[in-house]
Every structure is written in structure tokens, then in C-alpha cells.
Design a protein around this nucleic acid. Sequence first.
DNA 1: GCCATTGTGGCACGACCGCGCTAAATTGTT
DNA 2: AACAATTTAGCGCGGTCGTGCCACAATGGC
Lengths: 208, 208
Amino acid sequence: MATMPKIVDPGARRRAVADAVLRVIGREGVEGASLRNVAEEAGLAIGSVRHYFHDHDELLLFTMRELSTRIDGRVRTHVDRLLDPAARAERPARVEELIGEFLALDEERRQEAVLWMAFCGAARIRPELRACAVEMETGLRDLLARVLRGAQESGALPADLDVDLECLRLSALLDGLNLRAMLEPEYVTPEAQRAVLRRHLQGLRVPR
Amino acid sequence: MATMPKIVDPGARRRAVADAVLRVIGREGVEGASLRNVAEEAGLAIGSVRHYFHDHDELLLFTMRELSTRIDGRVRTHVDRLLDPAARAERPARVEELIGEFLALDEERRQEAVLWMAFCGAARIRPELRACAVEMETGLRDLLARVLRGAQESGALPADLDVDLECLRLSALLDGLNLRAMLEPEYVTPEAQRAVLRRHLQGLRVPR
DNA sequence: GCCATTGTGGCACGACCGCGCTAAATTGTT
DNA sequence: AACAATTTAGCGCGGTCGTGCCACAATGGC
């Protein structure tokens, strides 16, 4: 009864196709991610792609979630390292490192930021994508809230800080930096982004 | 030799068509702004639209510039009022008012912000639009620089402020707020935006 | 009244799109 | 060797797209 005619892991295939989608979107934008383009990029026939995604919408949504979990996973690594009860002296530097994980500081993360922005733009029109985008941003704010509250309790940040407000402010700053790094990377360099982030964090430390 | 067969102001027509483009983009996104959709929205035949824009690219670029000059004009009003050598006591409040002009604080500006974000997304792929987007952002930074330097000279801001850095930080914050207001308007309300902006400006006033 | 100029409307072509559908190739089980 | 399930490949329909091209209407100058 356990018949296995092909030795293909469907999950791996889907992820490989999603990778092709990301490459196409990075090159031509979301509207360029047609089944034909994606199939060619993945080195597959159109019919093969459609065998794993019975819908074009499903293909895009899966790819967006794939991207979000990829980003989320990388950040989670840093968050674990940060919350590790190691020497507290290192924490300030690691906070900057953690939050910098959301910025386009190297080519890999720059590409991810570009892709994420592309999906966010598409999410305004397509409801399914919109839900995914909101989840991601909410997760980002929650993560920032935990970090800021942790720093508050350890005395690194003033106790009377309005954490919710600061989370919105900081997350908006990060998104804005990514948006601009996407449009004018020659101006918003990694160094500039780091300087802005450092200045912002330093601005949090002074009592209001 | 001065023949005028029709009593149509071409400029007004082009602007009317651009308005239709903006309505369509607001409803369906940039990719929905096809000649057919735009013509129908404008109540014209597709041939008529093509009489005033011999290219689809030109239609989009003209519409983007139209939007940018519209935003720019509204801001320029506030900037003139701000630089008016009236009572200096009012200035801090007016600075907040001026910068708030870039935020989605009412339905009109929210719609403009959505449209601008849509164009910025499209600008990553299409070079002509990209140039327009960069011009706009550069203009925004220059404007912020003039305002901040003015406040610096009048003593409202610390003299050792890194104005260029703060302009990038502030402009990124504004863009990020607009992006999020576009995706989750129920969370990023006008009041929340105002609170973030006020907090940010207050953070500029404390000496570093 | 005539005409050149300008605006309007629309047809048709080739390209691309998603998707329903079918056929063939592949491969472990029997 | 024969089979059934899975994977791969692809045809073709109906639709939308931008655009080249043409016919016709409107209108002010002669």
C-alpha cells in the first residue's frame, strides 16, 4: 500500500520553487513572478510547478511565508544569544547587533529587505499577503518590546520609557531605512544605517 | 498659421487623466493602471488617452510627477508660513505641523501616502520612476535639513547635532510610518503617528 | 464652402497571463 | 513482467495587455 513512485520530497521541491520565485521577484518585481517565468527560473516545466502549487496565489503566499520564516529564523538565533544569561556587559552591543539583523547591512540581508518590501507593496491589494505582512510586523514589534523591557529592567533604559510608543517608532525607523536602502543604496549605505541605529538607541538611553 | 481646431487645454486633459490613474492605482495598485482601465475611469476612449500620452511609461511617469508636485506644493505652503519671520514662539508647534504634512494624518494625506508608496515600489524596477522617487526623497531631506538647521541657529536644537544623520533618521521614520499606516491603519492611527513624531522631535532637543 | 489641424474612437496584431485538461515518463511494489 | 501512483511535460482556451494603424468628427483660418 505504501507506494512511492518518485523519490521527491515535496517540501524540498516547494522550497526550491519558492527560491526561484524570490530570485524572479528580486529581478523583475512581484508582477514578474508568473508561472512561466518561475518555471524557467527553477529549470522546470510549467506543469511541474503547478503540480506542487495548484494556484498562483498559493505560490505567492507560500513564498512570502517562506521568506518570513527565513528572516524570523535568523533573528531568533540572535535573540537566543542575547537572552542567554551570559555576561551582561556584552548586552548593549548585542542589542545593536540583534536589531541590526533587520537592516540591509550586507548583500544577503539587503536582498531580503528588497524582497520583503516588494511583498509588502503587493500585500496592500491582496488580502492573504496582507495578513502575512501584519503578522510579521506584529512579531517584530513584540520582539522589540521584549528587548526594550529587558533593557529597562536591567537598568540600561529609563523606567519611564513608553515602550509601546518606542516600539512603533523603532520599527517604523527600521522599515523606513530598508525602504530607502532599496531605492538609493548608494546613499543609505550599511555604515549610514549603523550610524542611524546607534544614534537612535543612544537617544533611548537619555531620560526624558 | 496659428490653427486651433479644438478648444481643449492639453494640460488640463493630461491632469484629468492623471487623476484617473491615481484613482485606479489607489483601488487596484500600479499593475492595475492599464490604458483600458484608466480610459474607462476617466470616461474616455482608449484612443483618446493615447492621444495625450504616446506611451504607457510616459503616462505613469507624468502621473508620478503630478503626485509629487501636488505633495510638494502643499508642503511648500507650510514651509513658507514657517519661515515667515513672525513670532518665534510659535515655531516649535509649526515645525511639528510642517513635518506632519508628510504623514497620513487625514484621509487625503493617507491616500497620497498610499499612492506614493505604490509608486516607490514600482520605482525599484522602472528606472524613470526611480529617478523621480530619488528626487523627491532628496528634496525631503533637504527641506528637513533647512528646518533643523534653522532651529539649531535659533537655539531650539543643540548645536552639536549631526544634522545630516538626523535628516536621514527622521525621513526614514516618516517613510516607515507611512508604510505601516498603509498596511495596518487600524494600529497606526493619526494619533499614534502624532505621538511618535512628537516624541522624536522631543528626543532631538535633549543634548547628546 | 474648403481645408489643414487636432481630437476621438476603435480595430487588429502579437505577446503574455492563469488555468483546465490530457498524455507520457518514472519508479517502487507486487 | 505488470501495475498503480506520482511526477513531469505540455497543449489550448479565454482573457488582458500595449501598441501600430486607420477612419472619422470637430473646428478655426482662409
